[in-house]
Write a protein that binds this DNA or RNA. Structure first.
Lengths: 248, 248
DNA sequence: CGTTATTTTGACGGAATTCAACCATCGTGG
DNA sequence: CCACGATGGTTGAATTCCGTCAAAATAACG
C-alpha cells in the first residue's frame, strides 16, 4: 500500500501502463504536459467508496490499476451493477456536477484524477481528448447494450457463462493472450457482486457455477481461480454461438 | 406518405423540428451550410428494416419524425430491444463500417441522413458536432444503465410501469407539458415490442397491463391510448419512488 | 482458536413462461 | 355485404426456473 502510493506519486505519463488506451491515448506530448499540470493520483483500498450517487464530484479520472464497480440501488435495497471499471476506463462525466451511480473500489486501486473544471477547459481546447472520450463512450454504450441482452433474455446459466467469457476476454486482451485452448484467470468479484451484475441472487450464482463445474465447462482452484479447458464450449454455454460479438 | 416525402425534400435546416436537440444543435450557420451539402432525407414505412446487424452502413442519420427500435437477436430467436430511437436521436456510429444492431422503423419515419465519410471529415473539422454527439452518447449511456436496473431487478409489474413512465416523460418533454395530474399518451409499441424491450413475454405484458388497469393505475381507450390519472402513483408502481431519475 | 465473511447446498414457494384457446379489429376479395 | 384470413391482444392452466428461507460448510482474519 505504501509502495503503491510512492509509485503513484512518482509516476510520469511516459511510462503509464494505460497510456495507450485511456482518455489521454491520442494526446501528443504538448497536450500531455497540459494534462500533467492538472492531474493527481489517488489511492483507494478494496471496499472503499469512491463516490455516492447524488454526491458532488469535483474530479474525473482514469483507472490506472485495480477494479471498481458502478451500481444503482433501489430504496428497498435491490442492487444492479451497471458498469465494471477496469484499468484505462474513465470515471465521471464532464458537464455533470454530481455522481449518477455509486462507485466502489472492488480491489485496491489507483486513479489518475483531473479536477473537473480544468479538464473541461482542456477538453474544449484540445480536440484529441474529446475525440478519444467519444470513442470510449461509444464502446461503453455498446457494452451496456450487449449487457441488456444478457439481463433481459439469458438464463441463469447463460448469464454466468457470459460473465466468465467477458472477464476471460478482457483478461486476455490485457495480457495479449489468445482466447484459444485452455484459459486461466482470477475472478475479481464475489458471488454477491456477480449476482448484482447478472440480476440474480447469490445462491443462484453459486448453484450455476457449481453446475458449470460439474459439467466440465470450467474447473476451480480455490473459489476465485477459474480454468476454462475449452473457450468455445464456454461461449456456446453463453449463447453467443458463432460470431459472439462482445467488445474489448 | 406522398405529402410526407415532398415535405422532406423541401425541408430546410432552419425550420427543422429537431434542430435544437439533434446532433446539429450546436452548429452555427456556416456549419449548417456544410451539413446541408451532405445531407439527404430518407423515408421509411412502418415495419420496414432500416439496417440489419452486420450489414454495411454507409450513412449516419438523425431521426426527424417517427420511431425506430434497436434490437439484438440470438440464434434461437430470443430478442432484446436495446434502444428506442425518437425524433432527434442519432442513428449509426461514426468510425464503424457495419451496423451493430437491427434497426427497424416502428412507425412511418423520416431520417436526415449524412454519408458517413463526409460526416466523419466534418466531425474532425467542426468540433461542435463532435461535442454534441459526445453529450448525446453520454445521455444514451445513462439511459441504457437505467434500463439495466429495470431488466435486472424489477418485477414484471414494475417493468411495465417503468416503460409507461418513460414514454409519458418523453411525450411530455416533446410537447412541453408538465408531468402532473392526469396524463394521456399513445403507446407507440405493440405488446410484443414492449415485451422485447422489457425482457418479458407478450403474455406477461398483457396480463400486467390488465392488472394496472384493474388496480386503477391506468385507464385504456382502445388498446393503445393510455390515461394516467396520477403520475406519482405510476412512478411508485415503477419502484422509482422519490427522486426518480430517468433521463430523456 | 474463535469470530466473521463468504460460499455451498437443500427444501419450498411463487412469479413468470409455456402452451393453448379464444376474442377483436381490420382490410380484402368473392 | 359478409366470409376469410391476418394481425394483435386477452385469458386460462400447467410447468419451470429462479428466489426465498434456512442451515451447514469453508475460508478469511485478528
Amino acid at each position: 500500500m505504501l509502495s503503491e502510493a510512492k509509485f503513484a506519486e512518482t509516476r510520469q505519463c511516459g511510462d503509464c501502463p494505460i497510456r495507450h488506451r485511456a482518455v489521454c491515448a491520442r494526446c501528443d506530448s504538448d497536450e500531455l504536459v497540459q494534462l500533467d499540470k492538472i492531474k493527481f493520483y489517488r489511492n483507494y483500498e478494496a471496499g472503499q467508496m469512491i463516490a455516492w450517487a447524488g454526491d458532488q464530484m469535483d474530479f474525473v479520472a482514469s483507472v490506472v490499476t485495480g477494479i471498481a464497480t458502478l451500481t444503482q440501488v433501489m430504496e428497498d435495497g435491490r442492487t444492479q451493477m451497471v458498469g465494471l471499471l477496469l484499468p484505462s476506463d474513465f470515471v465521471g462525466r464532464p458537464g455533470r456536477e454530481t455522481a449518477t451511480y455509486n462507485v466502489v473500489a472492488t480491489s485496491d486501486m489507483t486513479l489518475c484524477c483531473f479536477r473537473k473544471k480544468p479538464f473541461e477547459q482542456l477538453m474544449s481546447s484540445t480536440p484529441h481528448i474529446a475525440q478519444r472520450l467519444l470513442e470510449m463512450t461509444l464502446d461503453e454504450l455498446d457494452a451496456a447494450r450487449e449487457w441488456m441482452l444478457v439481463l433481459g433474455r439469458k438464463t441463469a446459466r447463460e448469464k454466468i457463462a457470459s460473465l466468465l467469457c467477458i472477464i476471460a476476454r478482457r483478461n486476455a486482451a490485457l495480457q495479449m493472450l489468445a482466447t484459444e485452448g485452455e484459459i486461466t484467470f482470477d475472478l475479481p468479484l464475489t458471488r454477491e457482486a456477480m449476482a448484482d451484475y447478472l440480476g440474480l441472487t447469490l445462491e443462484t450464482v453459486s448453484r450455476q457455477v457449481s453446475a458449470l463445474k460439474r459439467d466440465g465447462v470450467i474447473r476451480l482452484e480455490g473459489k476465485r481461480h477459474i480454468i476454462v479447458p475449452d473457450f468455445d464450449r464456454l461461449m456456446q454455454e453463453a449463447g453467443d454461438d458463432g460470431d459472439g460479438g462482445f467488445l474489448n
